[in-house]
Design a protein around this nucleic acid. Structure first.
Length: 800
DNA sequence: GCTTCCCGCCACGAA
DNA sequence: TTCGTGGCGGGAAGC
């Protein structure tokens, strides 16, 4: 122990390895390293610990003759004080380095110590923010995507060791990859959703949910502590499953290159990070306490004794990881109330990753693409592409003006990685679609709307189309065809392109290596439970985004889900006949999760730009959300994903606050129970049982979905849609719970079963409800949020 | 007093 | 042997 961790040793190390301190090589560096200096001068002195901050020791005299005066002035005038503070802030960063030697010359050790950045300022989270600020969320080939650790460490004034901590976590998300010694490549968030999806899959395969439950149960029974055989038993049980020794989840083309890394990667921060993320992705709600996470991670490590030190170490690492993940906006800290006080935990605030696709995949593969090796990550993106292509053609025909498009495709690294494959994709997909569309009888595909390229220049390049798919285009309005539900109901959704945007990052080669592709046999297991969980997670996630301050989260989400204020709308109208389509698989891409609203039409009227609350400020639009039952399907990717939770819990606060999250959630699960609600239907609008196209056109034009003069042909679906009379009563037992989880401290929850419908109407007054979301009796407010729901062949429009 | 996590020692393996 | 990498845990800052 000694000799290894003595402060003197550390300090010695500082001189050589820490750029930050290397800058401070002046003799006056003593404050920070005085002990080390002393130690070196006096080797026989006591082993030193990290020098405590002498904060209590105040200088006896003012620093300068005018210090007292300044203090007095500052105290007397907040304005002056603020100005001083601002000046200090602005100066501190730029001058700190140069000033240090000088400071050290003029300041006493204590004073200099004060000038040192505080612990918080040196936190890994902050450092990660700085690190991330150096690179775009979505890299492009045009930019310098190479990361030289030395340079970064130097520029950020930290030792390289800290950069490793960050990079390792980023690596676990495939946001960076190691290129060579001291060299990493920045990928940004291009691979993030794919990675998260993969991780979720692994987490599910790894039965993390069960493990979490087991640990919670044990905790509850007070059977899990750090002594006794039970721990080993626990560890054994945790580590017993076949996936416990799973290694790093890689994406093709991003495998580790360094054997040295591989040699201990099983314990690496990378793997821990991935597992940690998995816990969130499989949890419901998506809140994971550090304790549980640590125990699970420990349990997976062989069967070592669960001693306390190991646990503490694990916790430390989890903090490291959590800090980085927080900086990425993927999680945020919360506290979970426990009998014995509160426990630190983290809540997932990243993009929702749904696994419904996995459940639906069999059908998809069977009906759409029989041959499948990588069934999880295949055709649908292609379909989307096809649709995009079609839409593009339509647009050209219509000469619809569009803003210049920043084609992200060419910038995607994946593009260069798989040029040939990508080149094949569109044609293949088109061919396949053509071949199968007949079978489907409803080749309804909702192309992804234009990416945020126009009115609201996105900070981030389009997340989509890494394959180089050209800019999307669509006709102004696209009624999305919904397949018939099992009850024989078809639906259409009129989508505003800004909401229709779904991420459809296509990666032809994407495949989760360590995973078996066997998950596709679970289609039958689609049940309310699963759906509940998914929707609950979604809801929870929505809750997480309620806080407008979660910029990073909103950013991430908006990038995935939202579109710009482009006023173009998708137009898709085709009758869907195959009732099985209801269970058709969605896109494997997390963002291309289609949602069906049985017995209703959803018209998204959002005018706002993504992430802009103001866009929802106008409440002139009215509509009705009718929910009857939940179906989950999407014959083809592209249908706007809307989850039940989005509807019910957001209509919901998130809808209001972060509108884009609601309508555009790329990860949304098609779990939107649509029911005809008298309350909603009572909106001050005309209720036409069979809205004519003129009515629809009027409405759409009125709300700006389509330009005046543009006529949306009568949607066959609107006229053919059978009314769903038997809504599936989907219980969302966790829905309510998640709403409660809004309060971070709420750990667990009574899982009473109640329907989405209940939640939906309860939400306005519910715990998550945003005050601005009044529970108007007529539901007008909800509609005014920007979405017009047309229930059951009724066009509910609130005209101001 | 507990939580959080900075810090850097030092093991490991490639060069 | 050097150096990149990163596991690990002491212990201080922060609450």
């Amino acid at each position: 122990l000694e000799g290894k961790k003595t402060t003197s040793g550390r300090r010695r190390e500082n001189h050589s390895s820490e750029p930050y301190r290397s800058v401070l090589k002046t003799p006056l560096k003593q404050a920070a390293t005085s002990h080390s200096v002393l130690t070196e001068i006096q080797p026989d002195c006591q082993p030193l610990t990290t020098p405590p901050k002498p904060k209590e020791i105040l200088p006896a005299d003012p620093w300068t003759p005018t210090s007292n005066l300044k203090i007095l002035i500052s105290a007397a005038s907040p304005e002056i004080r603020n100005r001083e503070q601002r000046r200090e802030l602005s100066n501190s960063t730029s001058e700190v380095l140069q000033a240090k030697p000088c400071l050290q010359e003029h300041l006493s050790g204590d004073e200099y110590e004060k000038s040192q950045p505080s612990r918080k300022e040196k936190s890994l989270g902050l450092l990660c923010h700085k690190f991330l600020a150096r690179y775009p969320d979505y890299s492009s080939t045009a930019e310098n995507n190479y990361i030289c650790l030395d340079e970064v460490a130097e520029e950020l004034n930290v030792e390289r060791r800290r950069i490793y901590d960050i990079v390792n976590v980023l690596e676990s998300l495939h946001m960076v990859s190691r290129l060579a010694k001291n060299k990493y490549v920045w990928h940004g968030r291009h691979n993030l959703s794919k990675t998260l999806q993969a991780l979720k899959k692994v987490g599910e395969d790894n039965k993390y949910t069960q493990q979490i439950q087991m640990i919670k149960k044990r905790e509850y029974e007070h059977e899990f502590d750090f002594d006794g055989e039970r721990n080993e038993e626990m560890a054994r049980s945790l580590g017993s499953n076949e996936h416990s020794e799973m290694s790093f989840v890689e994406l093709p083309g991003m495998e580790f290159r360094a054997a040295s890394v591989n040699s201990r990667k099983d314990k690496s921060l990378r793997v821990m990070s991935q597992k940690f993320v998995m816990l969130f992705l499989v949890s419901t709600p998506q809140i994971v306490s550090l304790e549980v996470a640590a125990k699970i991670l420990i349990g997976e490590d062989q069967l070592e004794d669960l001693d306390k030190s190991k646990f503490k170490t694990k916790i430390r690492r989890l903090y490291d990881i959590a800090n980085v993940l927080s900086s990425l906006g993927l999680i945020e800290k919360v506290h979970v109330a426990e009998e014995r006080g509160r426990k630190p935990a983290f809540k997932w605030t990243g993009p929702e990753i749904q696994n419904l696709k996995q459940l639906l995949q069999p059908q998809c593969s069977k009906n759409l693409f029989p041959s499948r090796g990588k069934q999880n990550f295949t055709r649908h993106p292609s379909l989307i592409k096809l649709v995009r292509s079609i839409e593009n053609d339509r647009r050209k025909i219509q000469s619809a003006p569009t803003s210049p498009v920043k084609i992200s495709a060419s910038t995607d690294q994946n593009l260069s990685a798989f040029p040939s494959k990508m080149a094949e994709v569109p044609a293949m997909a088109k061919h396949q679609l053509e071949g199968q569309s007949n079978n489907l009888s409803s080749p309804e595909v909702v192309p992804k709307p234009d990416l945020p390229r126009t009115a609201a220049p996105s900070q981030q390049p389009a997340l989509t189309q890494p394959l180089g798919v050209g800019p999307l285009s669509h006709s102004p309005v696209s009624p999305v065809m919904l397949p018939q539900t099992p009850s024989g109901v078809s639906y259409a959704i009129y989508l505003h392109p800004s909401q229709a945007h779904t991420v459809t990052t296509y990666s032809p080669s994407f495949m989760l290596q360590p995973l078996p592709c066997a998950n596709v046999t679970e289609i039958k297991s689609i049940n309310s439970k699963v759906l509940n969980r998914i929707t609950t997670e979604e809801g929870d996630n929505q809750i997480a985004t309620d806080d407008p301050t979660k910029s990073s989260t909103a950013k991430e989400r908006s990038t995935i889900k939202s579109e710009t204020s482009s006023q173009q709308c998708l137009k898709r109208s085709q009758a869907l006949q195959d009732s099985n389509l209801i269970k058709r698989c969605r896109s494997d891409e997390e963002s291309a999760v289609p949602t069906f609203f049985p017995s209703g039409y959803l018209i998204a009227l959002t005018q706002c730009t993504h992430g802009n609350k103001a866009g929802f400020a106008n409440k002139e639009k009215a509509g009705v959300c009718s929910l009857q039952h939940t179906t989950y399907s999407s014959p083809i990717a592209g249908i706007i994903p809307v989850t039940a939770s989005e509807l019910n819990s957001v209509n919901i606060p998130a809808f209001h606050i972060t509108p884009l999250n609601i309508m555009l959630s790329p990860t949304s699960i098609a779990a939107a129970p649509v029911l005809s609600n008298p309350c909603l239907n009572s909106s001050n609008t005309s209720s036409a049982q069979n809205p004519s196209s003129s009515v629809v056109n009027f409405t759409l034009q009125h709300v700006g979905l389509i330009p005046a003069g543009v006529q949306v042909p009568a949607n066959p679906v609107l006229q053919h849609v059978p009314v769903s009379s038997q809504p599936e009563n989907v219980s969302h037992s966790s829905e309510n719970r998640n709403l409660q989880e809004e309060k971070p401290s709420v750990p667990k929850e009574p899982q009473e079963s109640h329907t989405v419908t209940e939640n939906f109407f309860r939400t306005p007054g519910g715990p998550n409800t945003v005050s601005s979301l009044s529970a108007d009796s007529d539901g007008t407010d909800r509609i005014s949020q920007g979405t017009l729901y047309i229930p059951q062949r009724k066009l509910e429009v609130s005209e101001d």
